[in-house]
């Protein structure tokens, strides 16, 4: 087991109820859930491998492939939807040349949608890494990526 994983396990007792928090911590360190790590989690939390996989695949938060350097999350909540978030998503897809759920070949951007960020009064909005960009229009989308 590598030291990263050992560090994660050190803050837990290895109980089944900790399974989701453990997986969250593992993903925080690696950016995704590597298969080997999930096998170690199964041994540590003393639950079958199938259960670890079953839980991990149930929740939308968990990923099984590495993520890009910058994580783009397009809000698809109701307020954003009625204010044109489909157009925002499409514009980002065109600008980056990838579809929702994909990562650019150079590994710089991953594009996801999220159910609702909760910034409904500033719709439509997009979260890039931890920063929310509000009141977007397709024209403003171009500017988001110009800076980089």
């Amino acid at each position: 087991m590598d030291s990263t994983l050992k560090n994660v396990f050190d803050s837990f007792q290895g109980k089944k109820e900790e399974l989701i928090p453990i997986l969250q911590k593992v993903q925080e360190r690696y950016g995704y859930l590597p298969e080997d790590a999930m096998l170690e989690v199964s041994r540590f939390a003393r639950v079958p491998e199938s259960t670890v996989y079953g839980v991990a695949t149930f929740y939308a938060q968990f990923r099984f492939t590495p993520i890009g350097e910058n994580r783009i999350m397009v809000c698809r909540g109701t307020a954003c939807h009625v204010k044109g978030s489909v157009g925002i998503l499409e514009e980002i897809e065109r600008k980056l040349g990838i579809k929702e759920g994909e990562t650019t070949p150079d590994g710089r951007y991953s594009l996801e949608t999220v159910a609702c960020i909760g910034c409904c009064s500033l719709a439509p909005c997009v979260m890039i890494n931890k920063k929310v960009h509000a009141n977007l229009t397709p024209q403003k989308v171009a500017k988001l990526f110009k800076k980089d």
Binding site: R76, G77, T78, A79, H81, A115, G118, C120
Partner: peptide
Amino acid sequence: DEGDPGAFMDR
């Protein structure tokens, strides 16, 4: 677990 899209009261 405020999951309804379009809701941010609890947040």
